[in-house]
Design a protein around this nucleic acid. Structure first.
Length: 890
RNA sequence: GGGCGUAUAGCUCAGUUGGUAGAGCGCUUCGUUUACACCGAAGAUGUCCAGGGUUCGAGUCCUUGUGCGCCCACCA
């Protein structure tokens, strides 16, 4: 009975159908799995619901799906929980660009409510599209449980956390969440505050101006931003600096380009004596460091630049001018007065918004902050504890230190954003409304009023009474996603929360460690009093074939869907798992994916051979049926199962995949299957199907589609996805041993040696030769495997096996090969010169190795100090090589 | 300035406790033998970045330096 399978595996013909079968079978839902023991849960990181999947998402999902499928096959009640993130600022930026382009309007044209609703619909729409992409990858997630950070229940929990933290008050009256006027990173385009991690730095050339505030001023300062000097309230010098010692502590009045300043001379250890003039003009309103100094030295804080990046009222002719205009005006004025002493080009880092690349203005503004080191419950200390003592295991291990250093350096976290998209901060104020100008935009930051502190209430519902207005700010997106680990599971009462929390695995790209991993840990510990997950695995970033970052502008990006279309999902999955080391970036090229397509096809053809060659019904196995190659492949498979299982337990995906490839292509396809064509046994069908069945299972987490497709060709009644992971123990019944591998290796080595000698001698492939093998103690083994030695492309037509050499053959007509104790003679087809050359080469090679070993073993220290086993194997190697050399020379 | 990673075949990279240097791709020669040309056979190619150290023994551990990449901080 035979069955036809197409010559080449065509992924496009199978994938969608197979995914549908899986989905319909319901096995992505944990409660539908049968006979489970234990649970496994991975809450999937939610991609931003505003775009498409890129390779970074894919590589993460593949790792998660791989682990999920493995655990499901182990019999665990497995849940991969998917979701989407509303991605506050990013989505708002994307959507604003979209409406600008398509409708030429801004968010103000729509108004807050309409804008919000449109973005919401946009996200829902994109999410649906992204879900189809995620399914393309083969993600075995439970879609019935899918969550969105804007789901009412999720949002409610997020708000609840805010309220709870706000109400966390220590003995000094400090709240865990507080509202305060602080210096923050302001993006004028987004018109919002940003957290430190949302700011990027771009190198640029800047001009450093050296000048005095006015001509009577005693100290020269240097700055790249003269316009901010309108808000200077001090000059800081290094306390060790002799030059300025006499001025320290004094206050000077200056008229800086028409604006009066009071400048106090203070000291600060961080001032670099050699940089610039060695004196820093302190601008507390527009520099984070200066703001710090102002706190320490109790300086006045003057706000020069407004939230629209223009000079604020009260600065004469400069007011209303943009930052750059004001800078030019001031530089011109300074020049006019002859105050500029020097101009210098130097490399500077410009801070820009991570999302829209607009230059950041540091400015003082009233925002909501999380105190990460609160007395009642120190988020950073608690997080440090669980990382340090290994309650959360981190892969790769070195990321543990990276995480700890992040935790140690974290500052209070600004969680308010002046954008419209996202959950709104549940704080309420009175009197705000009355103070507003008639035309002011209620939600626009520009018109935000400053004295809103009058009365405040924090709570999810609007309080009773007249005149309450909700805070117009929304949350930093990471305040929501930081609570993803437990909110998705239905904290605090949900069944999933009770059953699956803390989850087993969290996998994320190394680039979002500071954004997400850390925040998820602190917020989870605070809310649930438990760690969010037991294992945290970081993937590297994916770059192009040359190691460059992929980007749309460079045009070197690889579209995952295009690759799936071209090479199949399985090949794409393999290209991300094999050859990648955890936490390290990897390069990906089309050629690489094509290589894995070939591997997938190889597996397909192994199956094709096995299935088409099958003689049903399969005979029940009995020990005598097993050939040397049968025993070899069974014993090898036993090892493979152990190795792959061990690797997966430790998240060593690449090693596991590498071993599977080696086994599939080398051991199985090139040797076992080839051998099975010549050493036909009654057990072959049984062994081949047994090996194939288990190999499909081992491969399945990596390449679910092709394995499932083959599985169905095998007429299996159940889906592979729910079948059980193979056990090495099951192979004990065949009673194979290491010796079985050794035996087959001997045959293999003889075959390889003959092929090699023929090739070196340039013997035509078609030309048949006669062989004599002097087998010594391996007489039986070699004699029994005559068919292999003749059939496996050795070109040996007639074979004679003897245990001892009986008579001298005519050496001139002979190729002589030595494999350990075994000597092989090939007769006929000899090019004497080439053969002499080959022998010479062989001998030289042996002699070289023997020399190295003799020196090593002649070293008394080595013999005395190295472990006995090492010394012994080296001695054996030497003896073997010496004997080979002698035999070659005979 | 601080930190992390990395340096191994022409290219992209593996190399788990120190014990005979590996894979894929590419290259050379050969081959269509009924699983597969998305194939098969054979082959070539390495001062494992450099110097120093520990060790009987170092690609692997320590140290110094250099190149490249990344992250953080940041010079006003």
């Amino acid at each position: 009975m035979t069955k036809e399978m197409p010559k080449a595996y065509e992924p496009g013909l199978y994938e969608d159908d197979i995914y549908k079968q899986w989905e319909e079978s319901g096995v992505f839902q944990p409660e539908n799995l049968e006979n489970t023991s234990g649970t496994y849960c991975n809450v999937l990181p939610p991609p931003n619901a505003n775009g498409e999947l890129h390779l970074g998402h894919v590589s993460g999902y593949v790792a998660m799906d791989l682990m999920g499928r493995y655990q499901r096959m182990l019999g665990k009640k497995t849940l991969l929980l998917p979701g989407k993130d509303h991605a506050g600022i990013q989505t708002q930026v994307v959507y604003e660009k979209k409406i600008k382009k398509e409708r030429n309007i801004s968010r103000h044209n729509l108004g807050r409510e309409k804008f919000y609703n449109e973005i919401y619909d946009f996200c829902i729409d994109r999410s649906a599209y992204m879900r189809t992409q995620e399914k393309k990858i083969g993600l075995s997630a439970d879609w019935s449980r899918e969550k969105f950070t804007m789901d009412p229940k999720i949002v409610n929990n997020v708000l609840d956390t805010f309220v709870k933290m706000y109400n966390e008050v220590d003995e000094d009256g400090n709240r865990m969440i507080y509202r305060g006027e602080r210096i923050i990173n302001w993006c004028p385009r987004c018109a919002s505050a940003l957290a430190d991690v949302e700011v990027e730095h771009e190198e640029q050339k800047a001009k450093l101006f050296y000048f005095k505030y006015d001509k009577n001023f005693p100290i020269t300062i240097a700055t790249t931003r003269p316009e901010t000097k309108l808000g200077d309230t001090a000059i800081a010098v290094n306390p060790k600096d002799e030059r300025y010692k006499e001025y320290i502590g004094k206050t000077f009045q200056a008229n800086f380009c028409g604006i009066d300043l009071n400048i106090k001379i203070i000291t600060d250890h961080n001032i670099d004596l050699s940089f610039g003039a060695g004196a820093l003009g302190v601008t507390p309103g527009h520099s984070a460091i200066d703001w710090q100094m102002a706190q320490v030295n109790d300086l006045e804080i003057i706000k020069v630049i407004g939230e629209d990046a223009n000079i604020r009222p009260g600065f004469g002719e400069y007011s209303g001018k943009s930052v750059l205009e004001a800078r030019e005006m001031i530089v011109a004025k300074l020049k006019e007065q002859g105050l500029i002493e020097k101009e210098e080009e130097f490399d500077n880092n410009l801070s820009v918004c991570e999302r829209c690349k607009t230059a950041i203005e540091p400015l003082v503004s009233e925002q909501w902050f999380v105190n990460v080191d609160h007395k009642n419950f120190s988020l950073k200390k608690e997080a440090r504890k669980v990382i340090e003592n290994g309650e959360i295991k981190i892969y790769p291990e070195r990321y543990k230190d990276i995480m700890l250093s992040w935790i140690d350096n974290v500052h209070d976290w600004c969680i308010s954003r002046q954008i419209w998209w996202g959950p709104r901060i549940p704080a309420w104020y009175r009197e705000i409304f009355d103070l507003r100008l008639p035309n002011a935009d209620l939600d626009d930051n520009k018109s935000k009023i400053e004295n809103r502190k009058s009365e405040i209430y924090v709570g999810i519902e609007k309080p009773d009474g007249e005149g309450w207005m909700q805070d117009s700010d929304t949350f930093d997106t990471w305040f929501s996603s930081g609570q993803w680990a437990y909110n998705t599971l239905g904290f605090p009462e949900g069944n999933d929360y009770k059953e699956f929390y803390p989850s087993d695995t969290m996998i994320m790209g190394r680039d979002i460690l500071p954004f997400w991993a850390f925040r998820m840990i602190i917020l989870s510990i605070y809310r649930t009093k438990q760690i969010p997950f037991k294992n945290l695995y970081f993937t590297g970033l994916i770059r192009d074939g040359q190691g460059k970052k992929m980007s749309k502008s460079k045009g070197n990006g690889i579209e995952p869907l295009e690759m799936i279309e071209k090479f199949g999902t399985d090949a794409v999955r393999l290209s991300m798992m094999i050859g990648a080391t955890p936490g390290n970036d990897m390069n990906l090229s089309e050629e690489k994916i094509a290589g894995f397509r070939n591997l997938v096809n190889k597996l397909w053809n192994v199956a094709r051979f096995a299935i088409s060659d099958l003689r049903f019904p399969i005979v029940e196995l009995n020990q005598d049926m097993l050939t040397v190659s049968d025993r070899y492949i069974l014993e090898k498979m036993k090892f493979l199962i152990r190795e792959v299982s061990g690797d997966l337990e430790e998240y060593r995906f690449s090693q596991a995949g590498e071993k599977l490839r080696e086994f599939t292509w080398n051991d199985l396809a090139d040797w076992y299957i080839e051998a099975s064509k010549f050493a036909v046994s009654d057990g072959k069908d049984f062994v081949l199907i047994k090996i194939l069945t288990d190999l499909l299972k081992l491969w399945h987490p990596f390449i679910p589609f092709v394995t499932e497709a083959i599985w169905q060709e095998l007429d299996s009644d159940k889906k592979l996805i729910v079948s059980r992971w193979p056990l090495a123990l099951d192979y004990e019944v065949y009673k194979t041993k290491q010796e079985d591998i050794d035996n087959f290796e001997i045959i293999k080595n003889i075959i390889i040696a003959i092929r090699n000698a023929r090739s070196e001698n340039k013997v035509e492939p078609a030309r048949k030769v006669k062989a004599l093998i002097v087998a010594g103690e391996y007489f039986d083994l070699i004699n029994d495997n005559e068919a292999l030695l003749k059939g496996m492309r050795t070109g040996v037509e007639k074979l004679e096996v003897v245990s001892k050499k009986l008579e001298e053959k005519d050496e001139n007509e002979t190729i002589k090969i030595v494999v350990g104790e075994i000597i092989i003679y090939l007769f006929g087809a000899i090019d004497k010169e080439k053969e002499a050359e080959r022998i010479k080469k062989e001998k030289a090679n042996l002699e070289k190795q023997i020399e190295v070993l003799r020196v090593k073993l002649g070293n008394k220290d080595f013999v005395e100090r190295a472990p006995e086993a090492i010394v012994k194997t080296e001695q054996e190697r030497l003896l073997k090589m010496e004997s080979e050399l002698v035999k070659l020379g005979e």
